[in-house]
């Protein structure tokens, strides 16, 4: 019996890459392997993807009509019941995991660790506080179950293939509440562009881009570079782009190989979201912009001049 249980994040068809990152974290806790639980309704494809991941001991599937959409109040009692057999319950530190893990922990009567960035020992972990401006090492006393969310940007995903874990269907007989109902998901289409959280290259725009229309030149550059497109809070607040593109403390924390920021001044809350990028490039008209303090390559210039010239070289 593996000691670590990972709650898989998926959309009914695709396993989110954050699950593979949780597995990497789990291996630092216990290299004997971890179990993955998928909650859903007819999501066999997801269970198969999870079973193929390196380091999975067993995939447990809980299929119920109520699990069609990820509703924390519905999922939490099922996971809490399953957690009886485990010492650790891990979820990704995405909006999915952040919504769910505390509810699971409270049902189990234990605290929860948010945004684990490294495993220092079986019961000792590092996590960021104050928007990443300090790092605290925390210890969990013996005898307590550990429920944690894993900071995706701090862990590489395990290999997505090669594993051949057993898939077992589990029946959990707990009563599920009907007080919370999924209605709909509205999302701005990013077309065929790569996902912001998994893309190797991210092109990002800020207030300096100026308008929704002007973002087109960023999309065009992104398509040439096979990049995802992100934005600062200022650009989202101004209505240039939808909220799911926001990068930063309250948006997405990302770790691409290359991050190129156009017209982003670099508020501390934005920098928190990009500190784990391999290389940060900043282009800004204002040479004093704080983003230049953490950029690996900085260019003082007008993005409307720089981007067309850059495109010519690609």
């Amino acid at each position: 019996m593996s000691k670590v249980l990972i709650i898989a994040e998926h959309d009914g068809t695709h396993l989110n890459q954050s699950t593979a990152k949780c597995l990497n974290c789990a291996q630092s806790i216990d290299d004997a392997g971890a179990d993955v639980v998928t909650l859903g309704n007819q999501c066999a494809a997801v269970a198969e993807q999870a079973a193929a991941l390196t380091g999975v001991s067993k995939v447990l599937t809980i299929e119920r009509a109520e699990n069609e959409h990820a509703v924390a109040a519905v999922m939490a009692p099922q996971i809490a019941a399953l957690a009886d057999d485990y010492d650790y319950v891990l979820a990704p530190s995405t909006t999915f995991g952040k919504d769910l893990a505390p509810r699971v922990a409270a049902l189990l009567g234990v605290g929860q660790l948010s945004d684990v960035m490294s495993v220092e020992g079986p019961r000792e972990f590092k996590r960021p506080i104050y928007a990443g401006n300090a790092v605290v090492t925390v210890q969990v006393p013996e005898g307590k179950k550990i429920v944690a969310t894993v900071r995706a940007a701090s862990f590489r995903p395990v290999a997505p293939s090669g594993g051949q874990a057993e898939i077992a269907s589990v029946q959990i007989s707990v009563e599920l509440p009907g007080h919370t109902r999924f209605v709909e998901l509205l999302s701005g289409s990013s077309g065929d562009r790569p996902d912001l959280q998994t893309a190797k290259v991210v092109i990002s725009g800020g207030r300096g881009v100026g308008s929704e229309e002007n973002f087109e030149i960023l999309y065009r550059l992104a398509d040439k570079m096979n990049a995802a497109v992100g934005a600062s809070r200022a650009a989202v607040d101004a209505g240039f782009v939808p909220n799911e593109m926001q990068v930063g403390q309250t948006g997405k924390i990302i770790s691409p190989d290359l991050y190129i920021a156009f017209g982003i001044s670099g508020a501390i809350q934005h920098l928190t979201g990009i500190k784990d990028a391999g290389t940060i490039v900043a282009v800004n008209k204002d040479g004093e912009a704080p983003i230049f303090e953490i950029a690996d390559i900085g260019l003082v210039g007008d993005l409307f001049d720089v981007i067309p010239e850059l495109e010519k070289h690609l």
């Binding site: 000792e124 790092v135 605290v136 090492t137 210890q139 953490i294 690996d296 070289h313």
Partner: peptide, 21 residues
């Protein structure tokens, strides 16, 4: 939980400024 210690985050190395595209 108990906090064992606090530390500042790892610093990124100072980057370079380039003149043009």
């Amino acid at each position: 939980f108990s906090a064992v210690r606090h530390e500042p985050p790892a610093e990124r190395q100072k980057g370079v400024m380039v003149e043009d595209v």
